[in-house]
C-alpha cells in the first residue's frame, strides 16, 4: 500500500509543485494520475521512489516512511519499486538487453533467468529485433519501451510509470497497456502518470487529476 498524507513539495524559490496531497493507493490497484504538463505528476512519482524529499508531510510505501530509509534498507526498497522515468534514464552506450537486465542484476537474479526475462519482455513490447541494438541508436518510442521493460523486469510489487505512451502509436500503446495490465493482474500496484486520456478513458480504474499542485478525484475506480 502507498500512502501520502498532507504532502507538499516546494521548489526554491517558491514553486509549489504539490500542496497538501493526501492519497492512498491499495495493493494491486492500477491508478491513473492525470493533469496538464507541469501539474506535479512527475514530482509525485519521484516522492514515491525517494528521488525527491517532500517539504512537508509523510510518504509511506509498504508501511515504511520512505524518507527515513537509508543505505541497504533504501536499496532493498528501491528493488521493489520499478520506475519508468519520463526522461528514460537509459545507458545509451549499452544494448537494449543490457539496459533491461540491470534492474535484475542488482538483485542477483540468475543469468539464465535474466536472459529469458529480457527476451520475453522485448517480444511483448515488439522489440525482439532490438535485443543487441545500442540504446542510443533506438528511436524515442523504442527507448521508452526499453525503459518500461526495465521497470517491470524485476517483477516489483510497485510500478511507477511516467507518460508511458508519449511517443507511441496506437498499436504500440495497446501493447504497453497490455503489459502493465498483466503486471497489475499478477498483483503489482501500478501508478501511471499521463495526460493521454485515451489510455484510461475506457477503463474502470481510479483516476485523479493534479491541478496547481492539488489532487482532485476524476473517477472512482471499481472495487478491487
Amino acid at each position: 500500500m502507498v500512502e501520502m498524507i498532507k504532502v507538499s513539495k516546494i521548489y526554491p524559490p517558491q514553486v509549489r509543485a504539490l500542496v497538501d496531497v493526501s492519497l492512498t493507493i491499495n495493493n494491486g490497484e492500477m491508478f491513473f494520475l492525470t493533469g496538464a504538463s507541469g501539474a506535479g505528476k512527475t514530482t509525485l512519482l519521484k516522492l514515491l521512489c525517494n528521488m525527491e524529499v517532500p517539504t512537508n508531510g509523510l510518504v509511506e510505501v509498504a508501511g515504511k516512511d520512505i524518507q527515513k530509509l537509508r543505505g541497504r534498507a533504501l536499496a532493498k526498497m528501491r528493488q521493489k519499486i520499478g520506475v519508468a522515468y519520463q526522461d528514460f534514464k537509459l545507458l545509451l552506450d549499452r544494448t537494449a538487453a543490457e539496459n533491461i537486465a540491470i534492474s535484475m542484476e542488482v538483485s542477483y537474479k540468475k543469468s539464465a533467468y535474466i536472459k529469458k526475462r529480457v527476451k520475453n519482455l522485448l517480444e511483448r513490447l515488439s522489440l525482439a529485433d532490438k535485443h543487441d541494438a545500442i540504446t542510443g541508436e533506438l528511436s524515442r518510442g523504442e527507448q521508452q519501451r526499453v525503459a518500461l521493460a526495465r521497470a517491470v523486469a524485476n517483477s516489483p510489487p510497485l510500478i511507477l510509470v511516467d507518460e508511458p505512451t508519449g511517443n507511441l502509436d496506437a498499436v504500440t500503446t495497446e501493447g504497453v497497456m497490455t503489459l502493465l495490465n498483466a503486471c497489475k493482474n499478477s498483483g503489482a500496484t501500478v501508478v501511471i502518470a499521463t495526460h493521454d486520456e485515451s489510455i484510461f478513458r475506457d477503463t474502470t480504474h481510479r483516476v485523479m487529476e493534479l491541478r496547481s499542485g492539488r489532487l482532485h478525484l476524476v473517477r472512482e475506480g471499481a472495487a478491487l
Binding site: 521512489c49 543505505g71 541497504r72 536499496a75 532493498k76 528501491r78 528493488q79 542488482v106 538483485s107 524485476n154
Partner: peptide
C-alpha cells in the same frame, strides 16, 4: 541509475 534501481552501496 544503479542507485535508483536499488543497487546497494
Amino acid at each position: 541509475l544503479l542507485k535508483l534501481v536499488g543497487a546497494t552501496n
